[in-house]
Amino acid sequence: MSEQQEREMIFVFTGPDGSGRKTIAESVGATLGITKVISFATRRPRLGETNGQDYHFITPELYDQFESDGEFIENVSVNGNRYGLRAKDIAYNLKKSGSIYLILNPEGAHALKDTYGDKVIRIFIYADRRTVQERQSEAGIDPAIIASNLNQYESAIRYQASCEHAFENYDLAHTVFDIANTLESYLQRNLEERD
Protein backbone atom coordinates (compact mmCIF):
# COMPACT_ATOMS: atom_id res chain seq x y z
CA MET A 1 0.00 0.00 0.00
CA SER A 2 1.39 3.41 -0.94
CA GLU A 3 1.68 6.35 1.45
CA GLN A 4 -1.11 8.09 -0.45
CA GLN A 5 -3.48 5.15 0.02
CA GLU A 6 -2.65 4.95 3.73
CA ARG A 7 -3.74 8.58 4.08
CA GLU A 8 -7.00 8.21 2.15
CA MET A 9 -9.93 9.42 4.25
CA ILE A 10 -13.56 9.90 3.26
CA PHE A 11 -15.40 12.34 5.52
CA VAL A 12 -19.17 12.04 5.12
CA PHE A 13 -21.37 14.83 6.49
CA THR A 14 -24.85 13.53 7.17
CA GLY A 15 -27.95 14.27 9.24
CA PRO A 16 -31.51 15.46 8.73
CA ASP A 17 -32.38 17.96 6.01
CA GLY A 18 -32.18 21.46 7.50
CA SER A 19 -29.45 20.51 9.98
CA GLY A 20 -26.90 22.70 8.18
CA ARG A 21 -24.75 19.78 7.04
CA LYS A 22 -23.99 21.41 3.66
CA THR A 23 -22.91 24.78 5.12
CA ILE A 24 -20.79 23.09 7.75
CA ALA A 25 -19.23 20.59 5.35
CA GLU A 26 -18.21 23.31 2.91
CA SER A 27 -16.76 25.50 5.69
CA VAL A 28 -14.80 22.60 7.19
CA GLY A 29 -13.66 21.42 3.75
CA ALA A 30 -12.37 24.90 2.90
CA THR A 31 -10.68 25.26 6.30
CA LEU A 32 -8.84 21.94 6.00
CA GLY A 33 -8.28 22.01 2.24
CA ILE A 34 -10.27 18.82 1.61
CA THR A 35 -11.74 18.12 -1.84
CA LYS A 36 -15.52 17.84 -2.21
CA VAL A 37 -17.00 15.02 -4.29
CA ILE A 38 -20.32 16.03 -5.84
CA SER A 39 -23.35 13.80 -6.29
CA PHE A 40 -25.75 13.72 -9.24
CA ALA A 41 -29.42 14.74 -8.88
CA THR A 42 -32.44 14.57 -11.17
CA ARG A 43 -34.21 17.53 -9.57
CA ARG A 44 -33.98 21.17 -10.56
CA PRO A 45 -31.58 23.43 -8.62
CA ARG A 46 -33.12 25.17 -5.62
CA LEU A 47 -32.68 28.87 -4.99
CA GLY A 48 -28.98 29.56 -4.46
CA GLU A 49 -27.78 26.19 -5.79
CA THR A 50 -25.27 25.98 -8.64
CA ASN A 51 -24.81 23.13 -11.09
CA GLY A 52 -21.42 21.48 -10.56
CA GLN A 53 -21.03 23.02 -7.12
CA ASP A 54 -24.00 21.72 -5.12
CA TYR A 55 -24.92 18.80 -7.39
CA HIS A 56 -24.49 17.76 -10.98
CA PHE A 57 -28.09 18.38 -12.06
CA ILE A 58 -28.89 15.93 -14.85
CA THR A 59 -31.92 14.61 -16.71
CA PRO A 60 -33.65 11.44 -15.53
CA GLU A 61 -32.63 9.88 -18.87
CA LEU A 62 -28.92 10.51 -18.28
CA TYR A 63 -29.32 9.27 -14.71
CA ASP A 64 -30.90 6.06 -16.04
CA GLN A 65 -27.95 5.62 -18.41
CA PHE A 66 -25.41 6.01 -15.59
CA GLU A 67 -27.41 3.58 -13.47
CA SER A 68 -27.68 0.95 -16.21
CA ASP A 69 -23.93 1.27 -16.81
CA GLY A 70 -23.38 0.45 -13.11
CA GLU A 71 -21.66 3.77 -12.39
CA PHE A 72 -23.42 4.59 -9.11
CA ILE A 73 -22.00 3.36 -5.83
CA GLU A 74 -24.80 5.13 -4.01
CA ASN A 75 -28.27 5.54 -5.52
CA VAL A 76 -31.26 6.82 -3.54
CA SER A 77 -34.69 8.32 -4.17
CA VAL A 78 -35.86 11.21 -2.00
CA ASN A 79 -39.14 13.09 -2.50
CA GLY A 80 -39.49 11.68 -6.03
CA ASN A 81 -35.99 12.74 -7.08
CA ARG A 82 -32.96 10.52 -7.52
CA TYR A 83 -29.47 11.11 -6.18
CA GLY A 84 -26.39 9.14 -7.08
CA LEU A 85 -22.66 9.09 -6.47
CA ARG A 86 -20.27 7.62 -9.01
CA ALA A 87 -17.57 5.26 -7.77
CA LYS A 88 -15.10 6.64 -10.30
CA ASP A 89 -15.51 10.19 -8.92
CA ILE A 90 -14.59 8.94 -5.45
CA ALA A 91 -11.63 6.89 -6.75
CA TYR A 92 -10.30 9.77 -8.87
CA ASN A 93 -10.49 12.33 -6.07
CA LEU A 94 -9.03 9.98 -3.46
CA LYS A 95 -6.08 9.30 -5.73
CA LYS A 96 -5.64 13.00 -6.51
CA SER A 97 -6.23 14.48 -3.04
CA GLY A 98 -5.91 11.72 -0.47
CA SER A 99 -8.81 13.00 1.64
CA ILE A 100 -12.27 13.94 0.39
CA TYR A 101 -15.63 14.94 1.82
CA LEU A 102 -19.20 14.34 0.76
CA ILE A 103 -22.61 15.52 1.88
CA LEU A 104 -25.09 12.64 1.94
CA ASN A 105 -28.31 11.60 3.59
CA PRO A 106 -28.02 8.75 6.12
CA GLU A 107 -28.83 6.09 3.51
CA GLY A 108 -25.98 7.31 1.31
CA ALA A 109 -23.60 7.57 4.28
CA HIS A 110 -24.41 3.97 5.20
CA ALA A 111 -23.76 2.78 1.62
CA LEU A 112 -20.34 4.46 1.59
CA LYS A 113 -19.41 2.97 4.97
CA ASP A 114 -20.36 -0.49 3.69
CA THR A 115 -18.17 -0.04 0.63
CA TYR A 116 -15.11 1.75 2.03
CA GLY A 117 -15.13 0.61 5.67
CA ASP A 118 -12.62 2.29 7.98
CA LYS A 119 -11.69 4.95 5.40
CA VAL A 120 -15.15 6.49 5.99
CA ILE A 121 -15.67 8.82 8.96
CA ARG A 122 -19.31 9.89 9.32
CA ILE A 123 -20.00 13.28 10.88
CA PHE A 124 -23.61 13.57 11.98
CA ILE A 125 -24.97 17.14 12.09
CA TYR A 126 -28.26 17.79 13.86
CA ALA A 127 -30.63 20.33 15.35
CA ASP A 128 -34.08 20.00 16.87
CA ARG A 129 -37.13 19.46 14.66
CA ARG A 130 -38.44 23.05 14.95
CA THR A 131 -35.05 24.52 14.02
CA VAL A 132 -34.64 22.37 10.91
CA GLN A 133 -38.18 23.28 9.82
CA GLU A 134 -37.46 27.00 10.25
CA ARG A 135 -34.17 26.74 8.34
CA GLN A 136 -35.85 25.01 5.42
CA SER A 137 -38.65 27.59 5.36
CA GLU A 138 -36.11 30.43 5.38
CA ALA A 139 -34.28 28.74 2.47
CA GLY A 140 -37.47 28.94 0.42
CA ILE A 141 -37.96 25.18 0.12
CA ASP A 142 -41.40 24.09 -1.04
CA PRO A 143 -43.69 23.41 1.98
CA ALA A 144 -44.55 19.94 0.62
CA ILE A 145 -40.84 19.04 0.48
CA ILE A 146 -40.37 20.38 4.04
CA ALA A 147 -43.29 18.24 5.24
CA SER A 148 -41.75 15.19 3.57
CA ASN A 149 -38.35 15.96 5.11
CA LEU A 150 -39.92 16.30 8.56
CA ASN A 151 -41.61 12.91 8.11
CA GLN A 152 -38.09 11.48 7.68
CA TYR A 153 -36.60 13.46 10.59
CA GLU A 154 -36.93 10.74 13.25
CA SER A 155 -35.37 8.02 11.09
CA ALA A 156 -32.53 10.40 10.16
CA ILE A 157 -31.92 11.22 13.85
CA ARG A 158 -31.72 7.50 14.69
CA TYR A 159 -28.74 7.19 12.33
CA GLN A 160 -26.69 9.34 14.71
CA ALA A 161 -25.87 6.25 16.83
CA SER A 162 -24.14 4.65 13.81
CA CYS A 163 -21.85 7.61 13.11
CA GLU A 164 -18.32 8.11 14.36
CA HIS A 165 -19.02 11.69 15.48
CA ALA A 166 -22.11 13.84 16.13
CA PHE A 167 -22.37 17.61 16.54
CA GLU A 168 -25.30 19.87 17.42
CA ASN A 169 -25.53 22.80 15.05
CA TYR A 170 -26.94 25.93 16.67
CA ASP A 171 -23.83 28.12 16.53
CA LEU A 172 -22.26 27.74 13.09
CA ALA A 173 -18.80 29.11 13.90
CA HIS A 174 -18.50 26.98 17.04
CA THR A 175 -19.67 23.82 15.23
CA VAL A 176 -17.27 24.36 12.32
CA PHE A 177 -14.39 24.95 14.75
CA ASP A 178 -15.14 21.76 16.72
CA ILE A 179 -15.49 19.61 13.62
CA ALA A 180 -12.36 21.01 11.96
CA ASN A 181 -10.37 20.18 15.10
CA THR A 182 -11.82 16.67 15.19
CA LEU A 183 -11.03 15.97 11.54
CA GLU A 184 -7.57 17.50 11.83
CA SER A 185 -6.73 14.73 14.29
CA TYR A 186 -7.45 12.15 11.57
CA LEU A 187 -5.36 14.01 9.04
CA GLN A 188 -2.43 14.45 11.45
CA ARG A 189 -2.57 10.80 12.47
CA ASN A 190 -2.25 9.73 8.87
CA LEU A 191 0.49 12.23 8.07
CA GLU A 192 2.51 10.99 11.03
CA GLU A 193 2.31 7.43 9.65
CA ARG A 194 4.43 8.51 6.69
CA ASP A 195 7.68 8.24 8.70
Rank of each mutant, 00 (worst) to 15 (best):
Q4F: 00
I10Q: 04
I10G: 11
I10A: 02
F11Q: 05
V12G: 01
V12D: 00
V12Y: 00
T14H: 02
T14Y: 00
G18M: 15
R21S: 11
E26M: 08
S27E: 12
V28H: 13
V28F: 08
T31F: 06
T31D: 12
L32T: 07
G33F: 09
I34L: 10
I34W: 04
K36P: 12
K36R: 12
S39P: 02
F40K: 05
A41F: 03
R43V: 10
R44N: 11
L47A: 12
G48S: 13
E49R: 08
E49C: 04
E49F: 05
E49Q: 09
T50F: 06
N51D: 14
D54A: 13
H56R: 05
H56G: 02
P60M: 03
P60K: 11
P60L: 05
L62R: 09
Y63T: 03
S68V: 15
D69C: 08
D69T: 03
D69L: 12
F72H: 00
I73L: 15
I73Y: 00
I73E: 04
I73W: 01
I73P: 00
E74L: 14
N75P: 11
N81M: 00
N81D: 05
R82G: 01
Y83H: 09
K88Y: 13
I90W: 01
Y92W: 04
Y92V: 02
N93V: 06
L94E: 00
K95I: 07
K95E: 11
K95G: 09
K96M: 11
G98H: 14
I100N: 09
L102N: 06
L104F: 07
N105T: 10
P106W: 07
G108I: 00
L112S: 08
K113W: 09
T115P: 02
T115F: 05
T115S: 05
Y116D: 06
K119C: 02
I123S: 04
A127W: 04
D128H: 02
R129W: 04
R130Y: 04
T131H: 06
Q133N: 09
Q133I: 07
Q136I: 03
A139E: 09
G140H: 04
G140W: 01
D142Q: 08
P143V: 11
A147Y: 00
A147M: 13
A147V: 01
L150E: 09
L150D: 10
E154C: 07
I157H: 05
A161G: 06
A166K: 10
A166P: 08
F167T: 03
E168P: 15
N169K: 12
T175Y: 09
D178Y: 10
E184V: 08
S185W: 11
S185F: 14
Y186K: 15
L191V: 14
E193D: 14
R194H: 12
D195K: 10
